[in-house]
Amino acid sequence: MDELRRRVYGAGHKDPHAYAGPGHDYVELVGGPQDGLPLDVTGLTHQERTADAILITNQGQFGPGGRADYEPRAGDTDRCDWAGDVP
């Protein structure tokens, strides 16, 4: 993931840890409503990192409280691809 200062998925704008920083592991969310946001995966097990991530989003097909399904990209452990929105 590049060194640009980007807000991390789930962090509020006033959160003191809202941006990607050293000492953390991130995957990039690709496509869908969270496109381009880093997702902090620090401390997750291999099994957790290789499972789908169902993330709350206000910008998806189902509006506020809806969810976006991101699947780990085969052969690229640094990215998760959007698989669609779920209620």
Rank of each mutant, 00 (worst) to 15 (best):
D2N: 15
D2V: 00
D2F: 03
L4D: 09
L4Y: 04
L4W: 02
R5P: 00
R5G: 10
R6V: 15
V8P: 03
V8M: 05
Y9Q: 10
Y9L: 07
Y9A: 12
G10F: 03
A11E: 08
A11V: 04
G12A: 12
G12F: 13
G12R: 14
H13D: 15
K14I: 06
H17T: 04
P22W: 01
G23W: 14
H24K: 15
H24G: 04
Y26H: 02
Y26N: 07
Y26T: 08
V30W: 00
G31D: 12
G31N: 10
G31T: 10
P33F: 13
Q34T: 03
Q34R: 12
Q34I: 01
D35K: 07
D35C: 03
G36D: 05
L37E: 12
D40G: 02
V41K: 01
T42M: 12
L44I: 05
H46N: 13
Q47D: 14
E48M: 11
E48V: 07
T50Q: 14
T50V: 11
A51D: 13
A51E: 14
A51L: 08
A53T: 04
A53G: 01
I54N: 05
L55P: 00
T57E: 10
N58F: 06
G60N: 14
Q61V: 09
F62I: 05
G63S: 13
G65E: 10
R67C: 14
Y70M: 05
E71G: 00
E71W: 06
D76C: 02
D76N: 13
R79E: 09
R79M: 00
C80I: 01
C80F: 11
C80R: 14
A83R: 15
D85S: 15
V86A: 02
P87I: 03
